[in-house]
Design a protein around this nucleic acid. Structure first.
Length: 951
RNA sequence: GGGCGGUUAGCUCAGUUGGUUAGAGCGCCUGCCUUACAAGCAGGAAGUCGGGGGUUCGAGUCCCUCACUGCCCACCA
């Protein structure tokens, strides 16, 4: 029997099953092409205009999953990222949009190559021994076997992606896009090849881009080296020019020493030459204003092949460049006696040799930043080498305009500034890598004329001289070159033909990008540049020219925070504080972990992931589970006496609304408000607000109050009881089912399980994910008035009940003991209370309840000598056989009096202020007046009570 | 060196355009196995909103300043 839920919620028992089911059923596949022309549902929610943006059914909502590395394992950052995307996608799908969430993996050049190389090392071989072709084959093999494990993990998390559209960045169709982009940019003169200083990783043996270098502060040294000054005949004059360097080994490649032209210390050296120690080469002294007179010794050794600044100097002064290191940062033949030494060994030896020759003037401690390879942490060597670059300015210009003109919106907003700042100071992008795994650069060098041919199809002869001796460049492209193209390439670019453009027309630009700031420049910025550049060439569906507005790869970017450990430390393998999401999921369930992440995801703040929080949300899931059990139990009871409980609507007649039980009107009103607020929160990417609102509604209102109230009506004894029970049950089921749909984007598993059980195996859809997100109802004013007064009534009841309970506790009355109590209020309040005497009696465990109006509240009889307790609009009076704890009572009252006095004084201060009365808005003044009089009343009561106690 | 954040209860965090007595979860204290749930229920304590100054009738919220803290960019050898 589907209603037979186990007593305790056990996520492990339900989640795997649904995760598999969703994939198997292909539940979230979005068919190719143009809209299925589903009519607009006409649903309306509160924020009218805002909702219009996407609310009409059938509008595309497209998210590209930031493709994880094919070698990747899921970490908390992924899980946060995916939870956010999934919540939004599920929500929009349920709102009637054509939601498409597109998954894939990235070939991740360096990372993957490293992985397989490590494997080869273990086997006692190397990629060089294997050869390029075999190696690449090997990587493919690896990818087929182990790659994409992360997507399986993603399936386990219930990500509602379209698995039919899964891509890999090295897929043929995406490779075609990469090639087309390269060739086109080359044709446009925006790709060039040249010898420049690039960041070189000696371990990876490849160039890397500026972004892939991370700088660490390093306590190093300044070595001050004396370079002998030569006279015109080339003899040492006995004078020395001292230079300071942090990398002495690069002196082997020095081709000058630079000084500031106006540095008076060195004026006499203008035009002179120096002997470069250890190599005996003669190098000139050059004058350049770039040199800072204050820094170091004011004389800079110039090594154009190993430093970007020196390279620029070399260009200005026509200096030769001598590259003294090989690909592995060992000194090459240019280094003479040092050839073959590793750079650091060479450094040591050179310093030693200089010292022996008395050419070392000093060693100073010097703290400076040293660049490391982002991937393998090896110290990066700036090095002259022949690479491919993108002349980035024209692309950056468009990318800047796209954002400045508001075609792309960042959330949180501040990232727009970060983005623009980077984009406005961008440098040309080195896109070639000396790796084997990746997209080959489509350029061929002719061995006859040495001219390069760049082509879409592999050329058979040189475009320049016709020679057949062509060799393709051994370089591959930066991984981010291909991922930068994804928004266009996944929808078919560059093959956009009349028959073949349905996807592009329907889904480009994508709606939203959800990602971390760590790849803002790597990926987000590159996608914007490439998207604007290439999509701009694709005409609009109607044939008109595509403007920048529709060329952007996405309309919005939501940037989320970092997930840290419970102590706010960055998670890292070396620190050993990495939390494996899969482990946590096994322990607490996916739903609880998702809810944890969502509830903590306030924009701009890092998330300190704390399992205590997850425990709390597992408890929440358990709460939902047990609410379901309770409801099912009653539905079954009803069924036994012949009452059928339909799911999905309230059965009480609307025209009798005023007769409905207060709690029903109240919960419907709260539900509607929750729907409104959750929608609003999700629109603003306030996952935390949305989650907390839902939590508060379900636990704090639905379970704590409504369910408890409803229990009083759920009796199936007499016929009369049964009618009432049936009606109560149908409202209960309706509200519960609606709550499940609100919860479903956050907690897809438990809601799916319970929802199916609710329908006893005959659900109206295959999944709760395919139902509608509850629409916010805008009621007409008569209905709204009824609901509003129900809210006031309910609040009064809650305050009365809580007040009595609190009073009982203070009087140390045992919970089981039934006592008498008296409540007083205004005539309106008394009326509400009288209507609900039974409820109050039950909830406050009273044997007798007397309700009076303020006018008649004077204590007497058994209540004599007992103080009143104010509970909002109600005065509470509880009988007690026990003697009162006078000191405790006095303490409480004194505390209250102090609080009230403070409140009254604060209010009075403002209310006697002419300026406030004049300038503050009337409702603020009114509110304050009301508050003041209420507080004053409370104060008087408390004082009277204290007096009574003393007297 | 330049830029951007953060500082609110013991902990982790909310707090919309300045407006009534600053909230939540966890933790803590007290009492309850009340037949959906002890992963629960009921009640309770707890904050000079980092310091100082200013604007305003009114400041957690706006401005200035200081302190501490985190991140991003740059990379003068």
């Amino acid at each position: 029997m589907p209603h037979d839920l186990p007593k305790a919620y056990d996520p492990a028992a339900i989640e795997d099953h649904w995760a598999e089911n969703w994939v198997k059923e292909n539940l979230f596949a979005q068919p190719t092409g143009a809209s299925s022309a589903e009519p607009a549902s006409g649903r309306e929610t509160a924020s009218g205009a805002d909702r219009e943006k996407h609310r009409p059914g059938g509008q595309p909502f497209v998210i590209l999953l930031p493709p994880p590395n094919v070698t990747g394992r899921l970490h908390m950052g992924h899980m946060l990222n995916q939870t956010e995307m999934d919540i939004l996608t599920r929500w929009r799908r349920m709102c009637g949009d054509r939601a498409l969430w597109l998954p894939g993996t990235d070939h991740a050049g360096i990372a993957t190559q490293m992985m397989v190389e490590r494997q080869l090392t273990a086997e006692g071989t190397t990629r060089q021994a294997l050869g390029r072709e075999k190696f690449v084959e090997r990587v493919w093999e690896w990818k087929r076997h182990y790659g994409g494990a992360i997507l399986d993990q993603m399936k386990r998390l219930g990500a509602s992606v379209d698995w039919q559209r899964e891509y890999f960045t090295m897929d043929e169709r995406l490779s075609i896009a990469v090639r087309e982009a390269f060739v086109k940019l080359h044709e446009q003169g925006l790709i060039y090849r040249g010898a420049y200083i690039v960041n070189w990783c000696p371990r990876c043996q490849t160039a890397i881009s500026d972004l892939e270098v991370v700088y660490d502060e390093h306590k190093g040294h300044f070595w001050e080296i004396r370079y002998p000054v030569l006279d015109d005949a080339g003899r040492e004059t006995g004078e020395y020019l001292t230079v300071a360097t942090t990398r002495p080994e690069t002196m082997l490649g020095d081709t000058a020493v630079a000084i500031h032209p106006e540095d008076e210390r060195y004026t006499h050296l203008h035009g002179k030459k120096l002997r470069l120690p250890l190599t005996n080469r003669e190098i000139p002294i050059i004058l350049d204003e770039w040199v800072s007179r204050e820094f170091g010794t004011g004389a800079v050794k110039v090594t154009p092949a190993h430093d970007p600044n020196d390279f620029a100097l070399g260009q200005r002064h026509n200096l030769p460049s001598i590259n003294v290191m090989d690909d592995t940062a060992h000194i090459n033949a240019e280094g003479g006696p040092y050839a073959g030494l590793d750079r650091f060994a060479a450094r040591k030896k050179i310093v030693q040799d200089l010292e022996e020759r008395k050419l070392l003037a000093g060693i100073k401690d010097h703290v400076h930043n040293v660049g490391h390879c982002d991937r393998c942490k090896t110290v990066v060597e700036p090095r002259l080498s022949l690479q491919w670059f993108i002349k980035i300015q024209p692309l950056a210009d468009k990318a800047i305009a796209a954002v400045k003109e508001g075609h792309i919106k960042f959330t949180p907003e501040m990232y727009q500034k970060t983005y623009l700042n980077w984009m406005e100071n961008i440098h040309d992008w080195c896109i070639s890598r000396q790796l084997w795994w990746g997209h080959r650069v489509p350029a061929w060098e002719c061995s006859a004329c040495h001219i390069i041919t760049v082509a879409r199809e592999d050329p058979t002869q040189c475009a320049h001289c016709g020679s057949g001796k062509l060799e393709q460049s051994t370089d591959v492209l930066d991984t981010w070159f291909s991922s930068g193209l994804l928004p266009v390439s996944v929808f078919g670019w560059p093959n956009i033909s009349a028959e073949n453009r349905a996807d592009f027309d329907a889904f480009y630009p994508t709606s939203l990008l959800v990602t971390g700031f760590d790849i803002l420049f790597f990926w987000v910025a590159r996608m914007i540049m490439m998207g604007c550049w290439f999509a701009g060439e694709v005409p609009m569906p109607d044939g008109s020219k595509r403007t920048l507005k529709d060329s952007v790869p996405f309309r919005e970017v939501y940037i989320h925070a970092l997930v840290r450990d419970a102590n706010r430390e960055k998670m890292s393998k070396t620190k050993g504080n990495v939390i494996d999401p899969i482990e946590i999921v096994k322990q607490y369930g996916t739903d609880a972990v998702r809810f944890t992440l969502a509830s903590m995801a306030s924009p701009g703040t890092d998330i300190a992931f704390n399992v205590a929080r997850t425990e709390g949300y597992r408890a929440f899931a358990n709460k939902i589970w047990n609410a379901a059990r309770f409801i099912f139990m009653n539905v079954d009871k009803a069924q036994q006496v012949g009452i059928k409980t339909a799911v999905g609507h309230v059965t009480r007649p609307a025209f009798m609304m005023n007769e409905w039980p207060t709690e029903e009107l109240w919960i419907l009103s709260r539900l509607n408000r929750t729907i409104h607020d959750v929608n609003l929160a999700l629109e603003k990417y306030r996952f935390d607000d949305a989650a907390n609102l839902t939590y508060q509604f379900f636990w704090g209102e639905f379970c704590d109050w409504y369910l408890e109230f409803a229990k009083m009506r759920l009796s199936f004894e007499s016929d009369e009881d049964r009618d009432e029970a049936g009606a109560a049950l149908s409202t209960l089921v309706c509200v519960f089912e609606t709550s499940l749909r609100i919860l479903s984007p956050f907690m897809p598993f438990i809601t799916e399980e319970i929802w199916h059980a609710l329908y006893q195996g005959n659900p109206p859809q295959k999944s709760i994910a395919l139902t509608n997100f509850p629409p916010y109802e805008k009621y007409d004013s008569a209905v709204q008035t009824t609901l509003d007064s129900a809210e006031i009534a309910m609040q009064t009841l809650q305050q009365a009940i809580t007040g009595i309970r609190s009073r009982r506790k203070e009087l140390k009355i045992e919970e089981k003991v039934s006592v008498s109590a008296k409540l007083a209020g205004t005539s309106a309040t008394s009326m509400i209370l009288r209507k609900h005497v039974k409820i109050i009696e039950k909830f406050a465990r009273l044997g007798n309840l007397e309700i009076v109006s303020f006018a008649e509240r004077n204590p007497g009889g058994k209540y004599e000598n007992l103080p009143w307790q104010a509970a909002g609009p109600v005065d509470v009076f509880v009988e007690s056989a026990q003697t009162i704890d006078v000191p405790a009572e006095r303490e409480r009252l004194t505390r209250d009096i102090a609080k009230y006095e403070k409140g009254v004084a604060a209010a009075a201060r403002q209310l006697t202020n002419e300026a406030f009365l004049q300038k503050a808005p009337p409702q603020v003044v009114e509110g304050l007046k009301k508050q003041e009089s209420e507080t004053r009343l409370l104060l008087e009561k408390a004082r009277a009570a204290l007096d009574a106690l003393s007297g």
